[in-house]
């Protein structure tokens, strides 16, 4: 009996590692292969039969920094993303405080309205937003990108922060209130420090979505003045040169690395952040 159980357990382990290993390979193989694209000369990318053992070349690396305004794209990305996260936090922290700490009429509806904006397909609002920014003279600027990224991310930044605020025991606040502290001081001096992990998680996830954003950026940015990394990629195509895959691959890795490091650092909070606080990891 005991032996049988032991045997089925070791078989399970074999199956487990087979499945997990296969998926890991499926995840990582295209990525490693794409890295090899970034580090090979252009002549070995699109060939009659694929080249599996390419020669090493830093052509693409020189190309993206010397022939393209990559530093500018990077600056645009970083500027638009950080700006949008700051706008989000300034708007979301008070909103989340209101939704989590007060009882008032319409609270549930307001909360759901904020959540529901997450469901708005970019394509639905793309045409009006395009005309709005044209009227405001903001087309092709990173200010427009900042505003639109902030809008896209505001719903779940608010909901993540709200979820963390709900976890703070009411007593903590009541103690401060009997000391005579006002609501805003309580928010700033007690709640915000206590939910710092939540604020960081929300910011990281907002950052990822902002880096990924493609459709709005494509519409708003029409010159390198406002191109971000994501749309710059689509810019390495066309013309007589065809698609310049090795440059695309390197840019993809340049954008990937910082995100990867930050996400590994906040691993523990990720599931909670991704579900807007509905799942507590």
């Amino acid at each position: 009996m005991a032996e049988k159980r032991k045997k089925s357990r070791s078989e399970n382990l074999f199956l487990r590692y087979l499945i997990l290993g296969a998926w890991a390979l499926f995840c990582v193989a295209p990525v490693l292969w794409f890295l090899s694209i970034g580090l090979r000369p252009r002549t070995e990318i699109i060939t009659p039969t694929p080249v599996y053992f390419p020669s090493f070349s830093l052509d693409a690396w020189h190309m993206i920094w010397e022939d393209w305004p990559m530093a500018k794209y990077l600056r645009n990305s970083v500027g638009a993303i950080f700006g949008s996260v700051i706008i989000d936090l300034v708007l979301a922290i008070p909103a989340a405080y209101s939704l989590s700490r007060f009882e008032y009429r319409g609270r549930e509806d307001i909360g759901f309205y904020i959540l529901s904006t997450r469901m708005m397909a970019p394509a639905i609002v793309a045409v009006p937003i395009f005309f709005l920014f044209r009227t405001l003279g903001l087309l092709d600027t990173i200010w427009a990108l900042m505003l639109i990224y902030a809008a896209i991310n505001l719903s779940f930044v608010t909901w993540i922060i709200r979820s963390y605020m709900l976890d703070i025991p009411k007593e903590l606040e009541d103690a401060a209130k009997t000391d005579g502290a006002g609501e805003l001081r309580i928010l700033w001096e007690i709640i915000v420090p206590a939910i710092l992990p939540g604020i960081i998680t929300a910011s990281v996830i907002a950052m990822i979505f902002a880096i990924n954003e493609f459709l709005f950026t494509l519409l708003i940015a029409s010159t390198p003045d406002a191109y971000t990394m994501s749309v710059a990629l689509a810019n390495f195509t066309g013309g007589s040169d065809g698609i310049i895959y090795n440059a695309i691959a390197l840019v993809a890795f340049i954008a990937f690395l910082p995100v990867f490091v930050v996400v590994v650092a906040i691993q523990k909070h990720l599931s909670r952040g991704l579900t807007m606080g509905a799942v507590k990891g």
């Binding site: 295209p30 493609f214 994501s230």
Partner: peptide, 17 residues
């Protein structure tokens, strides 16, 4: 961490892959 890798690439990069 391994499984996360694809998710952290920009969608435009994934499209090109």
């Amino acid at each position: 961490i391994l499984f996360l890798v694809p998710m952290l690439f920009m969608p435009s990069a994934v499209a090109f892959i």
